[in-house]
Design a protein around this nucleic acid. Structure first.
Lengths: 331, 331
DNA sequence: GTGAAAGCGCTAACAT
DNA sequence: ATGTTAGCGCTTTCAC
């Protein structure tokens, strides 16, 4: 790999001049510029991003970090695509870390990102009081939260109204005549699990249904926990007649269990999932779901982040996007 | 962020000694080590990965690059998880680039990865004669191909027997009595699209069915192309009575079209997909599919890569893993 | 308009 | 067992 030094020698100028040309700095003679440009081409010179980042913390290294809770979840995949598209168009590369809802892994990856001198970070923290993330914000690293907020610190957040989204789902089930509606939640420490639980509760109340603690099961937000908790619920006597599932991995797991048990949907058990998927209408039966604008969440988050990088002082913004209930045949 | 220098001053030693302690080098007095360790703790010192990578190209910067063709495809998500698990356990961080089957984007990301001084790269090249990737291999960068190989250069590859996998699928359809079996392929320049086409053709022949060019449609490997090409096929007269779909995004797209058209599966049209999904059994109807061991492909690739990093000279290995036909109700 | 010198945080080679 | 010196590739003064 040719370095700036090689280019300088080839063009008969100093490295500084090469640097100026590379960074489109003014004050460079047109003739010199042409000569340098030619040398760059001849030597196939590519700026070394590592050296650049090392030298100038102040200047942008054009690198963003993204912390994804679970890459298997199509919701996060779409968030990621939104982030990526914006990053790409603004000349940022992103380093993606999938911590699999694991707090230890999260901490390790955060350390790595920090020590990679990233310019900014988009993260869905494992908990609202995530000490590591909070300290990162306080250290001045431009940071945007998606899907989950942070307490005790002012930070940009992009998410949906989880209470309302869950309300939509459960209210719909109640209006359809379901009486014993269960809620299969994700990890209890994840804010959205609780907010969705709140919406669930409110919808029950508003429809004159009793809140029964036994019908709420918390898991670890995975497909597997969807399978298991759904089985636990359907073994109860009397069993629930409908399910509200807390994310689409859980939904898919629950569907698997229902099919294995040979129960018919929605006759024997209805189901509404939080998060829509591109293939929801191809499921058996087609799935009623609360749609979050995942791609847009990612897009907005990336925009906010890039904005904050260029204007670190500005006040924190909290964006709440709308959810939408898509009624299909599972309810 | 405290630097090595800060630690050195605090502990009353030189940076070199600190470096030795950090890297567990021998030849360091127990007492000094303790003092340094304390200073590290007190100052919350974290080694700067950027500086480390800049200084020693020879030494490992503990960073791998991964080029993913399309993060929306669950197959690649599982490959990624396999890579990630191995990387994590070997103390490597990974920088993931999703190029969305876009050759321009691929080239840009490859440049970035190179200029980030990564230690190794796992990539699914857009084409077998991908000039950029080939030049990377020739430059000596440890590199492993997944899912797709490379011509004219000796390189580690991990993939499945696509011809055989496709044969399994189409042979199964033929044995089930389907006569006009269509193939919805991905991008024609992707090797696996062609190999799967070859298996398709062989299975037709072996079952005494005629190969009809009109029944083969190439697209861009996306959900959308699955939707569109399936519609084109089903508008034909006479229309195909079965579909073999080239990847799971295409499968999902095709299913959508079939449902929209109100055709019953498998009575009016059978379908077998390449790639199984965790929720295949929850689809309507449950999907017959060729399963690739995606997670293991990623795992093996990462192992090969780490191995090659420590032993750059070793001969290239080509690993071909087995596929498996999982028969469900769509065929 | 251009260059010389210093330094980002770290490690390698060579002292001591 | 520890320190000194040099330098990775680049940007940033501050000269000229």
């Amino acid at each position: 790999m040719a370095s700036m030094n090689d280019v300088a020698r080839q063009a008969g100028v100093s490295v500084v001049t090469v640097s100026r040309v590379v960074n489109n700095s003014a004050n460079v003679n047109e003739l010199t510029r042409t000569r340098v440009l030619k040398a760059i081409k001849d030597l196939k010179y590519k700026p070394n991003r590592v050296a650049k980042r090392l030298r100038s913390k102040s200047l942008s290294g054009n690198l963003l970090g993204v912390m994804i809770p679970d890459i298997r979840n199509p919701f996060y995949v779409d968030v990621l695509r939104g982030i990526e598209d914006v990053a790409y168009h603004n000349n940022y590369a992103i380093i993606v870390c999938n911590f699999g809802q694991d707090e230890t892994k999260e901490k390790m990856y955060l350390d790595i990102l920090q020590s990679e001198s990233i310019d900014g970070l988009i993260v869905a923290p494992v908990r609202e009081d995530d000490a590591k993330v909070i300290s990162l914000v306080k250290s001045g690293l431009p940071l945007v939260c998606v899907d989950r907020g942070l307490v005790s610190v002012d930070v940009d957040v992009v998410l949906v109204d989880n209470v309302k989204g869950a309300f939509l789902a459960v209210d719909h089930l109640a209006k359809k005549g379901f009486k014993r509606i269960a809620y299969i939640a994700g990890k209890p420490e994840i804010p959205s699990s609780r907010y969705r639980g709140e919406g669930y509760r409110k919808a029950l109340e508003s429809n004159g249904l009793m809140y029964d603690e036994g019908l709420v099961k918390y898991g670890d937000s995975s497909h597997e926990s969807g399978v298991r908790l759904c089985a636990e619920l359907l073994e109860m006597d009397p069993r629930p007649d409908a399910l509200f599932t807390g994310n689409n991995l859980i939904t898919l797991g629950a569907l698997e269990t229902i099919h294995n048990l040979g129960l018919s949907i929605p006759q024997e058990v209805g189901i509404v999932g939080f998060d829509d998927m591109p293939w929801s209408s191809s499921l058996n039966p087609s799935l009623t779901a609360v749609r979050q604008p995942a791609y847009e969440i990612g897009k907005r988050a990336a925009e906010l982040l890039i904005h904050r990088i260029s204007e670190p002082g500005r006040a924190a913004i909290s964006m709440m996007l709308n959810t939408e209930l898509i009624v299909r045949k599972s309810s």
